[in-house]
């Protein structure tokens, strides 16, 4: 597991930790069943407060990425579920929204944006 904290980031530290763990679950670097470091262990390693790492873990748990069992630590949950697909769809939407907003800034017509998407799709 790799986590890099930036003091310049727009995101609060708990969110940076959460997003980076999420990313690694989504791209498979953290396989399901992986035991995550303890909240206190992680806080110590990253030199952040315990409340910060607890918040990151409880958010990940609420979003269905990990499960925490008393005394057994937190483990990564299986990737084959709807929550994950939902997460991906949300990301696609966010990306598209950015593209649409940017297109609006230079008054790019809708059709041209569509053509761009098609072209990029083919070259991928």
């Amino acid at each position: 597991m790799k986590i890099i904290i930036s003091n310049q980031s727009e995101l609060p530290i708990y969110a940076q930790i959460k997003e980076q763990i999420k990313e690694q679950i989504l791209n498979g670097q953290l396989a399901d069943g992986t035991v995550l470091p303890s909240i206190r262990g992680l806080a110590k390693e990253l030199s952040v407060s315990v409340i910060t790492t607890s918040r990151a873990y409880s958010d990940l748990e609420a979003e269905g990425f990990i499960a925490t069992a008393q005394g057994r630590g937190s483990i990564v949950l299986s990737r084959n579920n709807d929550i994950l697909r939902e997460q991906y769809l949300k990301r696609i939407e966010e990306g598209l929204n950015t593209a649409i907003r940017t297109a609006g800034l230079i008054d790019l017509p809708r059709e041209e944006l569509h053509t761009m998407v098609d072209m990029l799709w083919k070259t991928q």
Binding site: P12, I13, A43, S47, V48, S49, V50, I51, T52, R55
Partner: peptide
Amino acid sequence: EDLEQIADYIFFIEKGKKVLCDSKDELLE
């Protein structure tokens, strides 16, 4: 400075009186 990173709670005192006491993350947000 650096102690800020690891503090869970912040108590802020001024002129002998409590100004605030909160979790650091709450305060930052």
